[in-house]
Design a protein around this nucleic acid. Structure first.
Lengths: 142, 142
DNA sequence: TCCTTCCATAAGTTTTCGCTTATGGAAGGA
DNA sequence: TCCTTCCATAAGCGAAAACTTATGGAAGGA
């Protein structure tokens, strides 16, 4: 489970859905209406986007009667946030000092270059195939 | 300038390039080699990915002799980070307390629902067409 | 039970995207 | 000057993705 998070975020309409869900959970129908306020789109199209977001672990669904309530899934967002965070600060020489102190200790001992590699490894291990489909498969991603 | 950041991040190979650049700036050729260590890919393919990353504001280029050195662009990453941050915590009732204190004051005065809408507006205004191509164009995004 | 509402899935089409090979320009060394 | 290296762009192709219309199932009210 948990398909490619960033691929899901790569589409503008899906990001708009997430923004709408930031106001709290909403039934699928309400999302369709809200999206239609900005551009013409069919109900199945929205439903398909919701499926992608679901499979990426970015939203959760809850059935209530005939309606399906969608909500943001913090867990899914967290994965993307961490990957980004790991990358950020690479151009910023002061970045290491923004870390927790215990991490800083090993940082100093190891040197910057080493830390970067380790961070990449850790991230790859933690998030596994979720973010980089490549890890595990020696073949081409697409 | 600055095309869709998340669309650029949506591709696994491009994310891998960014990870490689986290170790510091590198000439295009080195990136090609590094990518080839994991999967077969042509030089033009990499060049095209680099172009996308460039146009998204995620990397910068610097020419030196016959080589072109690529590096992460913190500004581009920052945009993505902020969008994600704005979304995160929507399911988390304690999120408002993680804010700076002055922001917290208006938060309490306004109530959660109001803040969310305001935050969305602010983000939309700041990042403009960079993240959501939709803002500004009343027509379909695709 | 029948009808309506809500939403997912199926099928088919068009557009986008990532890749390839081919080519050329720019910089530097012999 | 000529040759080589480095890399971007052009053109074309196949696969994937996003959209459409059509359809059906599940839940609830009359």
């Amino acid at each position: 489970m948990s398909a490619d998070v960033f691929a899901a975020l790569g589409e503008a309409t899906r990001r708009r859905v997430l923004e709408l869900l930031a106001d709290g959970e909403q039934p699928a129908g309400a999302l369709v209406e809200a999206l239609r306020a900005q551009a013409a789109i069919s109900q199945p199209a929205v439903s398909q986007h919701l499926r992608v977001l679901r499979e990426a672990g970015l939203v959760t669904v809850r059935a209530e009667g005939t309606r399906r309530f969608y909500a943001l899934d913090p867990a899914g967002l967290e994965g993307a946030r961490r990957w980004l965070e790991q990358l950020a600060g690479a151009g910023d020489p002061l970045a290491p000092f923004a870390q927790p102190l215990d991490a800083l200790a090993t940082e100093v001992a190891r040197g910057r270059r080493g830390r970067r590699a380790a961070a990449a490894e850790q991230a790859a291990a933690e998030q596994a195939a979720a973010l980089t489909p490549r890890s595990g498969t020696p073949s081409r991603a697409r």
